[in-house]
Nucleic acid binder design. Sequence first.
DNA 1: TGAGATATTGTGTGCGTACACGCAAAAATT
DNA 2: AATTTTTGCGTGTACGCACACAATATCTCA
Lengths: 362, 362
Amino acid sequence: MSKIRIKDIALEAGVSVGTVDRVLHNRGRVAKDVEEKVKEAIRLLNYQPNLAARSLARNRNHKIAVVLPPHKEDEFWRAQRKGVLRALRNTKDVGLSGDIFTFDDRKQGDLLKLSGQLFSGDYEALVIAPTTTEDAVLILDQCDKHSLPYVQINSNIEREKSQSLGYVGQDSFQSGRLAAKLLDLSTQNKSTVAVLHMESDVKNSSHMIAKEMGFLDYFDQNKGYQVITRRIVEIEDEKKLSDQIEYLLASDDSMKGFFVTTSRAHYIVEVLIKLGRSDIVLVGFDLIQKNIDALKSYKNIFLINQNPALQGFYGVMRLFDYILQNKRVDDKKYLPLDVITLENVSNYSHIQDRDNNDEVYL
Amino acid sequence: MSKIRIKDIALEAGVSVGTVDRVLHNRGRVAKDVEEKVKEAIRLLNYQPNLAARSLARNRNHKIAVVLPPHKEDEFWRAQRKGVLRALRNTKDVGLSGDIFTFDDRKQGDLLKLSGQLFSGDYEALVIAPTTTEDAVLILDQCDKHSLPYVQINSNIEREKSQSLGYVGQDSFQSGRLAAKLLDLSTQNKSTVAVLHMESDVKNSSHMIAKEMGFLDYFDQNKGYQVITRRIVEIEDEKKLSDQIEYLLASDDSMKGFFVTTSRAHYIVEVLIKLGRSDIVLVGFDLIQKNIDALKSYKNIFLINQNPALQGFYGVMRLFDYILQNKRVDDKKYLPLDVITLENVSNYSHIQDRDNNDEVYL
DNA sequence: TGAGATATTGTGTGCGTACACGCAAAAATT
DNA sequence: AATTTTTGCGTGTACGCACACAATATCTCA
């Protein structure tokens, strides 16, 4: 097979390696007939550059900045950060390095404090999880002004092209439709299902709304269900939570399923078990430990995994492609919506922390 | 940050790069105190070898052989082959190359014809999909005799350690349990479900049996269902197939779901639509085009995706880890069992052919 | 025709690592 | 004490490519 070097092309075309180099990178300064000859040789020998040598010779280091919400107490963001770190490890030797910045997405304006560092000139591109929309818009505007390309992950703020390199993350609307399908198939027709927004913070509100929209959309196309929406508050208070659920169940005899739009389905599981209502079908989000545990104690539940680690990973890799491979994309990349039950959870949670499984990308 | 070279360590430890090299690869021939000093410097500076330079300098080429069933008319094997090719592309510049051999798994003994080439000495390891057990055992025995390490993918023949580097593939038993859970949740208690073995070739028989076992195991632990097993034959004959299904449905009024243990669920979909029995819940396997189409025309169906492309990919990558990274594993790696419906299929089929999304691994 | 400008092509060095080789000092053997 | 052998360490080259620079060819216009 092939082990064709630039030298071999040069020999074949009867020129020097310098000329081949000029053709390869079209730096000009090559006579047209010679250029054709070289290109022909490249084609003939099916030259494939050795990426290891290339990245070694380039000897560049491109720095990027990654802006994420805090991960201390949030498994979702922790997983995302893991994906980012993995991508950074994998690209370290091939010219990409990065710093991760954390902002408190519960504090209005906290994101803006980073702008000094982000636009210091040290970074040539950005990965950002723009959870606080108003602040993020300002940051992205600055990116445009400074001509800093950026990839959005997890949440997407639609932008006029500009410096945007697109979005990598969840398709919340579709995940709502998926949840609806799961409830549809696992409950009986002519029953009632409820959308439960369980939030303690507002950061996910746009996702929650999109999920509800998708959910409603599905049942708009698949008649026979009554859908109601409730906001569940004071989740931490066991008694109050239980009361809310009990009230909800009492309000409609044909209540068959709940769609929890956040990662807090496990709270509902506890309540349902206590109420002896394990007939209710649940659909929730995210493979956090408490939800995984809930799979074991409750049968009628599906979890939808949105692959947070892959969001971080692909977010960085997209910048890598852009900076070092000259591949520009500015479209959306929706990650798979994994349907998780007790029967298939093991393989997915294994995936989440396969940090050891290190790869390095050229 | 890091950009620590061997040279830097040498400087720090007051020795030459040659000595550092000897320590790094423990080639011996280094005084104990000096070795300690170097190791200390490595620790201190947190040295991380530059893998691009490493693979360039090594300038090795390790050849492996990959043995797969034919892919001409089989989307499953085609996907698997794609995964293999992707892994080979990605490792090309870092010292791993491979040849793919095809054997006809419908012909007894065809695999054995390859042994001349496989053991020619050109290859230092093997990835094999041992679908024809008897033949495969002979091949694997020869591997042991020639000290050729091998990774099994897709099907696993249990071996006494030997040269085995483990298994990458599906967990058929668990996929049966998953199918059972899906049917359990989407049908009503006290109903009947049927396992349908639809085979035209025998190669998958062990998988089919394992799937049935898992299915039965689930309903052993979750009572209330009656499970029957049927072999469906003459699949291509529309009339005969329809008759078999009709007979099956007539035999039990409470029949609610079918578990198709092969990738041929789409045949059943056609029949059910014609029979006007779209109440039957189906669980089938594999994201082949006809099944994907079936998702659109039939609501009550789940497909389980066994990630054939990842099987090929990880199979090769495992050899890569072993040969070039010195990481030896000989355990099983079960790939995720993706639950697919019409609502989430788009993201998965996208994954299947992301050939463009090229990465290169060091 | 020839000097100077310009277009075209060739040469050399370095990227960080692996590895072969060689030299010196220490140890073992005679 | 002279020698061989072993041990410990440094030097140099190659890997394939990018890129700076040197060198040569071609053209321009007087």
